[in-house]
Nucleic acid binder design. Sequence first.
RNA 1: GGGAGCUUAGCUCAGUCGGUAGAGCAACUGGCUGUUAACCAGUUUGUCGGGGGUUCGAGUCCCUCAUCUCCCGCCA
Length: 462
Amino acid sequence: MALTVYDLWKSYHEKLDTEVTLSGWVRTSRTSKSFGFIELNDGTHFKNIQVVFGENLNNFDEISKISLGSSINVNGKLIKSPGDKQPFEISASSIEILGFCDPEFPLQKKRHSPEYLRTIAYLRPRTNLFRAVFKVRSLLAFAIHKFFTEKNFVYVHTPIITGSDCEGAGEMFGVSTLDMNNPPRTEDGKIDYSKDFFGKQTNLTVSGQLAVENFCMAFRNVYTFGPTFRAERSNTQRHASEFWMIEPEMAFSDLNDNMDTAEEMVKYLIRYVLENAPEEMEFFNQWVDKGLLERLNFLLNSDFGRVTYTEAMDALIKSGKQFDYKPEWGIDLQTEHERYLTEEVYKRPVFVTNYPKGIKAFYMRMNDDGKTVAAMDLLVPGVGEIIGGSQREERLEMLEKRITEMGLKKEDYWWYLDLRRYGTNKHCGFGLGFERMVMYMTGVENIRDVIPFPRTPKNAEF
RNA sequence: GGGAGCUUAGCUCAGUCGGUAGAGCAACUGGCUGUUAACCAGUUUGUCGGGGGUUCGAGUCCCUCAUCUCCCGCCA
């Protein structure tokens, strides 16, 4: 394979004073009358390589005026740099323009606002910020598989098109091939989905959890990692219509095992990225969030907080702070409450456990007090809720009772209920919002800026 | 789904009391023998988001539509 920028940064010592050939894009250029500098990058490494050129080039005039974004091929000698900003550089003997970049190119040699860059999402991966973000996103995805594989978890591909019509995790996008202008109707005038592609109403998945629980009962420790879809009209910095989720599920385990795994995983992911993307992380620390590295390193060396919902509510009430929503046992934690807890009270990630049953899903295990369920949310400073999980209700009678209480139909969950008939056991799992992890890792504040082509209400451009 | 704010040059933004359009950067031209978001000099750039209204006169005030952003709800 051809030499890359990555190769040179890793082993330039060995190649000093040898002839090299390198292709890439012009990131910036600075020229004088008889010489000039080009910062070259081919995307394989965060840092650029400086190319020095002089009047010995047969196309010196053309190269002097080269526009930012053009792709070039450079031949020259790798030498120690006289400048102190870089240890080495290429002294060019020839430079070929492979693809000229039109001066209309919208990316300039200056900072652009993230809002503007969203309007040119097809070009933004060429900026420093987005190259760093998407490199970290890639590393995080790999680290997730690495973590679970090392722990002997089995990766399960749960379906993206689902036929279970009430997963209870949010509004769903329908999947249909019916003619929307003239759909078949049943006798009572409703749309007749028995005529649809799958012979029933189907949707894009909102969670792989119910499906992955089945594999949990076969492999003990499993996880899914894939796209999920929510048709909520959420207009916030941390919600997207299409996002990725990691959902591990563990048999013969309880809520404490669940939190232990979640904490170990989050720390593993952070450590992996810090070790494998030091340049990108330094960039975030300098330009996006000044306290990022300090906060992440502190986190690695501390235990996450663990409090019950009841204790958290007491802390909110006792704080005396004026909230828009008055804290009171039984209400769900509002965003302002969550942020206050993780950012002001504990100043680190904190698990909140054992929520009132009325505000949580039907499958969460009823505690002995009859009032709370074995749920846990992980709140982190700056992002808020990053993980939601629970110990699952393993007792058939109790699960049926909860389904009825919540106004759901047992028939819709017949195969899920069967798990409680065929060798049931206490088990647990959680969902980690992948993008929220990327946000926490990079300090980037808007979920639209950690997804290559984000989908949000009224926006599916590119 | 509820609420608030924004929209002025390619980008980032200023525009006073309602009086007829500005800066920096970019681009372009020229200069410069080691630059580091290079520097210096000059030149070019406008449907002031769309529509309507008030007024002698609207970027500025009012109505309306749209976009974007932020907050809340939903959740990851």
